[in-house]
């Protein structure tokens, strides 16, 4: 019984952690806007924790460059399972407008596995919330498969 409660709780309490990888800030402020009164994601139990050790979902905005790819990998490794990664915006999914710049590695999936891609330049808060929901479904599925 407790096991099923835990399973249910996972979907009800996704704690997010936002990492800005080299974004132009456009997506970042939209992620923050999700927390604010208009969108209020805390309704769904989503909290921005800012510490990978407490987080369930990693939101990554922006392109990966040579310096922050290590940070990104490190943060991902420090998150306890089960976890999901959501790449936000054109840059996070593919490198976007910067993809040919000399210090750019590319999208987030060049470094860590990504579960959900949220498009947009910048992605709108609605899209980000939708992405988190899709991510939760993904990670419920992952937990099932792991059994």
């Amino acid at each position: 019984m407790f096991g099923s409660f835990i399973k249910k709780s996972r979907a009800k309490s996704p704690w997010i952690m936002h990492f800005d990888c080299g974004s132009c800030n456009g997506c970042d402020i939209e992620v923050l806007a999700c927390l604010t009164p208009l969108y209020d994601v805390e309704r769904f139990g989503i909290i921005n924790v800012g510490n990978p050790k407490h987080a369930d979902v990693l939101l990554v905005t922006g392109t990966v460059n040579h310096r922050n790819k290590k940070v990104l990998k490190n943060i991902y490794d420090q998150m306890p399972e089960p976890k999901a990664v959501i790449a936000i915006g054109a840059c996070g999914t593919s490198g976007g407008v910067f993809r040919e710049a000399y210090n750019v590695v590319g999208g987030v999936d060049k470094v860590i596995p990504v579960d959900v891609y949220v498009p947009g330049c910048p992605a709108k808060p609605e899209a980000i919330i939708d992405g988190v929901v899709a991510g939760l479904a993904k990670f419920a599925q992952k937990v099932e498969e792991a059994k």
Binding site: S23, G62, T63, N65, R67, Y102, V104
Partner: peptide, 11 residues
């Protein structure tokens, strides 16, 4: 610094 450096002047 350099965690966000993309090099877009060169673009």
């Amino acid at each position: 610094l350099g965690y966000v450096h993309r090099g877009l002047e060169k673009l």
